[in-house]
């Protein structure tokens, strides 16, 4: 008999939409560099590139390039995680013609070695979307995943890389957004 450990698809995915949010009006977005609150110095860039690739792959939204956003941050002397003000939003609307910005914060990244002698990667991220036309938050999502959340039986299905967990987590967040109306651009 095969014992299925961790088969229950437990999920900490939680997306809250603003009362007056109209996600259908968001077509073109910019993803700002992610804030990194972990001890892994590359976690922010890693999460950013993976989330960006998953969002581009979904085809739900038009995306501004990472390079463009770096110039925006440089131009406005902004650091990842720093709150945007009205002038920043104006800049985004005028210069980049985006409808919304996505900000991200990586709060947990690592390998958990307490689970039955295995090294299980885990990731937790917070993602927010702001409508740049009025500066209001559209949605906010928090999601956390462990590599063994995807285990089917024995070692099969288990995700052993942080990249893999980030990729799965990003896809789940994006699918949740799409399900709730994001990307249904009018």
């Amino acid at each position: 008999m095969v014992v299925c450990v961790g088969c229950s698809l437990r999920s900490d995915l939680e997306t809250r939409f603003a009362m007056k949010a109209v996600p259908e009006q968001i077509c073109r977005v910019a993803v700002l560099p992610f804030e990194n609150r972990t001890s892994n110095p590359e976690a922010g860039t890693m999460a950013y590139r993976i989330f960006y690739s998953e969002l581009a792959s979904s085809g739900a939204l038009q995306l501004e390039t990472e390079g463009e956003m770096r110039f925006f941050m440089l131009r406005n002397r902004l650091l990842p995680g720093q709150l945007l003000n009205a002038s920043h939003y104006a800049d985004l609307v005028e210069r980049l013609e985006v409808d919304a910005v996505i900000t991200g914060m990586v709060s947990e990244v690592g390998m958990d070695s307490r689970k039955a002698g295995e090294n299980v990667p885990f990731v937790a991220m917070q993602l927010d979307m702001y409508d740049v036309r009025n500066g209001r938050r559209v949605l906010s999502t928090f999601h956390r995943r462990w590599g063994d959340d995807y285990r089917k039986a024995m070692h099969f299905g288990m995700v052993n890389t942080v990249t893999g967990v980030m990729s799965h987590l990003s896809r789940e967040v994006i699918d949740d957004w799409i399900e709730k109306g994001v990307g249904d651009c009018r």
């Binding site: 038009q62 052993n160 890389t161 893999g164």
Partner: peptide, 28 residues
């Protein structure tokens, strides 16, 4: 293990046309 994310841009429009992330490890 190894993780790789790739992105393709259309050189005429400058837009992203494709992106994908792939990752695996010996244990997987």
């Amino acid at each position: 293990g190894m993780g790789l994310t790739l992105m393709a841009f259309d050189a005429e429009s400058g837009r992203t046309v494709w992106a994908k992330t792939s990752a695996t490890s010996l244990g997987e």
